[in-house]
Computed example of a mutant assay.
Amino acid sequence: METKGSFVVPTAPLRLEGAGIVLREWTEDDVDALVEMYDDPEIARWTPVVSPFDSGAARAYLDKARTSRAEGRTAQLAVTTDGGRPRGEVLLFRSGSDERDAELAYGVGAEHRGQGLAARAVRLVTELTLRELRPRRLVLCIEHGNTASEAVAHACGFTLTDELPVTRQAKGREVLLRTWSLRPENADRG
């Protein structure tokens, strides 16, 4: 049940285009690309995604994404340049810390890094979220030392907050994530 003022994930299907990219829903045809993207030491290091990441893990990941999507909890979108082969992913979901906030997460496959795909995807989802969904703020929760994700956050106008780190369990260890925030009134800075 939604409470007054809580952020709601947009309904499927969702497709966003702009800045030379197309964000689209995942399909069963994306299993091989998902393995290619997520069976990577950097993805394993900074995300809760299982490692090694094989076709079984990819199918389980897609099943979980579809279930979460159907329940209106998360929008997980493939980052593409043309609507075809995925090069990364951007996630939009209600923050676990405050349901009035929207949270974003992202990852880009190793061979596609350095092309600005994550920043462009974050900006595109940010624009939609602030314009149509109107959360109190957008947040990114990033583990200290993940300089690539911190650079994306900074490039997109997010600022590091002084909030206590968010604690999450991932792969049998406690992960401390720092909160980066973007309020609607500051969205044009990114």
Rank of each mutant, 00 (worst) to 15 (best):
T80W: 02
R100Y: 01
A118I: 04
V79W: 00
G107Y: 00
E99Y: 03
G96W: 05
P86L: 12
V125C: 07
G145C: 08
A118M: 06
A105D: 11
S51T: 09
S51I: 02
A119E: 11
L140V: 09
G109C: 03
G109R: 01
L133A: 10
N146G: 03
R137F: 02
P135E: 09
D54H: 07
A102N: 00
G96N: 08
G109V: 01
A65G: 01
A65S: 12
A75C: 06
T74Y: 12
P135W: 08
Q76D: 11
E132V: 08
R94I: 01
Y61M: 09
V122I: 13
L124Q: 10
E111I: 11
A70M: 04
N146I: 08
V122Q: 04
L117E: 06
A148F: 07
A121T: 06
G114H: 03
S55N: 02
R113E: 02
R123P: 03
N146T: 04
G84T: 12
S97I: 12
V125G: 09
T74D: 14
L138V: 11
A65F: 03
H144C: 12
T74W: 12
L92E: 00
T81G: 14
Q115V: 04
C141R: 14
A78Q: 05
G83F: 04
G84K: 09
T67C: 05
E132L: 12
E132Y: 07
G107M: 13
R87Y: 01
A65W: 03
R73I: 05
A121F: 04
V108I: 12
L124F: 00
A65N: 12
D82K: 09
P52H: 05
Y61K: 14
R66C: 01
G114M: 06
E127T: 14
A75E: 05
E132D: 15
L91H: 07
L130R: 08
Q115N: 14
I142M: 11
E89T: 13
L104W: 05
F53C: 00
E132R: 14
D101G: 03
A105W: 00
R136K: 12
L117I: 10
V108M: 02
A110V: 07
E71G: 14
Q115T: 10
A78V: 00
R123W: 02
R123A: 13
D54A: 04
G114D: 00
V125F: 03
R137W: 02
L140E: 10
E71Q: 15
P52M: 05
R66H: 10
G84L: 08
C141T: 15
G56M: 03
P86S: 09
K64P: 00
R113K: 04
T129M: 06
S55T: 14
P135M: 07
R136P: 00
D82Y: 04
